[in-house]
Computed example of a mutant assay.
Amino acid sequence: MKLLPFIPGFRPRLRLGIWLATLLIPIAFLRPTLAQADIVTLNANDNGKQVQLNVGDQLTILLPTISPRFGWRLTQTYPGQLTPTITNILPGVNSGVPGAPATFEIHFQAIGTGGLDLTLVSAQPGTGYASLGGFFRVFITIDKPGVAKNVNITEYGNRSRVKVNQGDQLAIRLDTTVGSQYMWEVMPIANQVVQLVTAAPTSSLKKPKKKAKVGSDEDVTFQFKALNPGKTTLRFLYRNAANNEAPPKRDFELEVEVPEPPK
């Protein structure tokens, strides 16, 4: 997966639409769209948690780093849902990790409904501080009253939990290899909490310009819809389609909760 470059201290005026795909932090000071916007602050102790935001809320993440020269990169961008606004380097005491030499601070604005697994990786591979192991992940849903949302989970979200509302769409995107005999298979769902919308996975590339090369990486997406309140576990196996008796190469699990709608 191609990572977005990190440029510490970079503060020019940029056109957001052009530079969002190439810079970690396009500098744009956005005002909340809701009168009662919240500010949610996370640090290293919140790694792996689920976070609920509303459109207009601000999210601040504080992570440890070995020195002001190094920070954290986003593994992907989230256009139309969550946009980064500014970064800072602060004293290490703010990161939630005692003794960290410095803290990388990144601010986000929730601008649209949806769900995503927000993942950051240490900007200098192999130099992640303390026990984070170079990765920080939180699973975010952004709501707006009366509006259904699309929740997108990648393979970074394996063994995680997500909460979606009735009517929400849930897309699970998994990695595969072009031309491989191995394919992702969704296991039977035990109840009617969510429903598989597509009978087979679809490629994440809408209209590829040319045929994918055998052996190259490719994503496939399974689409679900949240039907009824309750909890369920979605499980996928990466199996050899030519040999059903062969053990799966890997698996993916996601716990899904659909809460009772407000009365």
Rank of each mutant, 00 (worst) to 15 (best):
T85L: 09
K163S: 12
A21E: 12
S216I: 03
G96W: 02
R13Q: 13
P84V: 07
N158C: 08
G128M: 02
K249F: 05
G71K: 06
T113D: 06
A242P: 00
T87G: 04
R250D: 09
L34T: 13
V197G: 07
L227A: 06
T154E: 07
Q50C: 09
P208F: 11
A171N: 15
S180T: 10
N243S: 12
L14R: 06
T65W: 04
L82P: 08
A102W: 03
P145A: 11
R250I: 03
T202R: 14
F139T: 10
N94F: 15
Q58D: 02
I189G: 11
T60C: 07
T127M: 13
P261T: 11
F222D: 00
N152T: 14
Q81G: 03
Q223S: 13
P79T: 03
S122F: 11
P79V: 02
T141R: 13
L254C: 05
F139R: 08
V147T: 13
L42S: 01
G134D: 06
G133W: 12
N88V: 01
L59N: 02
P125K: 04
N94A: 14
M1F: 14
P84Y: 04
T65P: 01
L59P: 06
K207I: 09
S204I: 00
F236W: 15
V138Y: 05
R173C: 10
L120G: 03
F108W: 14
G128W: 08
